[in-house]
């Protein structure tokens, strides 16, 4: 149970970071933390105590493995997260060139 609780705490830290921080880079880090919390949760959902790694070989039976599906899913999710982080960093570099600041409260050319 405690590991799920840790997941929740990690997720909350990320959400806090996204909502409260004013620096663009810190917001991006916050999004990263949230993603990792979700990924961690997904991997834990497939975990089994005393399970072994899900590699098939001729001398072993398909018994008592941890669930391999969440691992494949999380690998994909990590790549998606990478693309998203790259996008956000690229946009924030361009924003820095245009506005000369990383402070989100000073980036307010859009009105309304």
């Amino acid at each position: 149970m405690s590991e799920y609780l840790l997941c929740l705490i990690l997720f909350s830290i990320g959400l806090y970071c996204v909502v409260r921080k004013r620096n663009l880079i810190k917001i991006i880090i916050g999004i990263g933390i949230m993603e990792y919390a979700a990924n961690l949760f997904f991997v834990l959902a497939g975990y089994r105590k005393t399970g072994r790694s899900p590699i098939f070989s001729a001398d072993q039976q398909v018994l008592n493995m941890v669930d391999p599906l969440p691992q494949a899913v999380v690998l994909t999710a990590i790549v998606i997260g990478l693309a998203l982080t790259l996008l956000l960093v690229a946009v924030s570099i361009k924003i820095y060139e245009k506005y000369g600041t990383f402070d989100i409260t000073k980036i307010n050319k859009l009105k309304g």
């Binding site: 996008l87 924030s92 924003i95």
Partner: peptide, 18 residues
Amino acid sequence: VEAESLEAAFKYAVMGAV
């Protein structure tokens, strides 16, 4: 790649990511 469109994209991307 103008100031406004970058700002809009950043807001959209952060919210979409969450």
